[in-house]
């Protein structure tokens, strides 16, 4: 069995525990591949360093549908695997939107769209002010970009030259009115990458980029939302 197949089986098993659904292939989860590459290859954070002030930060702005996020956190040891068996129960740590106060390794609680990028900009500014080299990643959805608050943060992050900030937009073409001309164009002043959101090497390459002067946006294109 290849390493990829092992990973796929593990995450598939975890997702089944979480959703109780045997039929969903891991590819049904639009964020799964990006999240796996982040935690497996990019982020300088582990369960042991989850409270270190100079850790890399990952902020899930698109807080709805967090099954893939929870599965990756369990696979990487941030949370016990048996937490996945109880989603949204009265004593569960895992809700339909994540709460940072309840889940180790979760940097922000989200659900209402359009909050993560502003928090990520503040996080990147706070790390820079303290002289930390850490990177800040924030994941959004293409429909989430409808929220105007994102565009406040996009403009300011470029002006403030937040070169340690990377935004990832999962593009499954679910925005009601779409983004004619492409999503990357909505990030003026940023360096941009557009990748196949299922190609792990391409995702890794895009997430590794940082041009030392500008924030970076990675548009990860996946199948249109069914």
């Amino acid at each position: 069995m290849t390493a990829t197949a092992v990973r796929s089986n593990l995450l598939g098993t975890l997702l089944t525990r979480l959703t109780g659904d045997e039929k969903h292939a891991p590819s049904a989860f639009s964020t799964l591949d990006v999240l796996w590459v982040l935690y497996d290859r990019i982020l300088r954070v582990s369960p042991e360093t989850a409270d270190e002030p100079d850790r890399d930060r990952f902020l899930l702005s698109k807080g709805h549908g967090p099954a893939a996020y929870y599965a990756v956190l369990a696979a990487k040891g941030f949370i016990p695997v048996d937490w996945l068996d109880d989603l949204g129960g009265p004593h569960s740590h895992l809700g339909h939107h994540p709460d940072r106060v309840l889940i180790p390794g979760v940097e922000i609680g989200t659900g209402s769209l359009g909050h993560g990028l502003g928090l990520a900009a503040g996080t990147a500014l706070g790390l820079r002010a303290q002289g930390f080299d850490a990177r800040t990643f924030v994941l959004l959805g293409d429909a989430e970009l409808d929220e105007g608050s994102n565009h406040e943060a996009i403009a300011y992050a470029a002006a403030a030259r937040l070169d340690r900030l990377t935004a990832i937009v999962i593009d499954n073409q679910s925005s009601t009115h779409g983004w004619p001309g492409g999503i990357a164009r909505r990030f003026p002043g940023w360096s941009t990458s557009v990748v196949d959101g299922r190609d792990h090497d391409a995702i890794e390459d895009a997430l590794s980029q940082s041009d030392g002067d500008r924030p970076h946006v990675v548009v990860a294109v996946v199948e249109p939302k069914g």
Partner: peptide
């Protein structure tokens, strides 16, 4: 690095404050 004027963007002003606080 610690006096930040985000422009006329009050939603961002508050989000940035939250992010700063999360870093200590």
């Amino acid at each position: 690095d610690r006096v930040l004027n985000v422009g006329i963007r009050e939603q961002l002003m508050t989000g940035v404050a939250g992010g700063l606080a999360l870093t200590g």
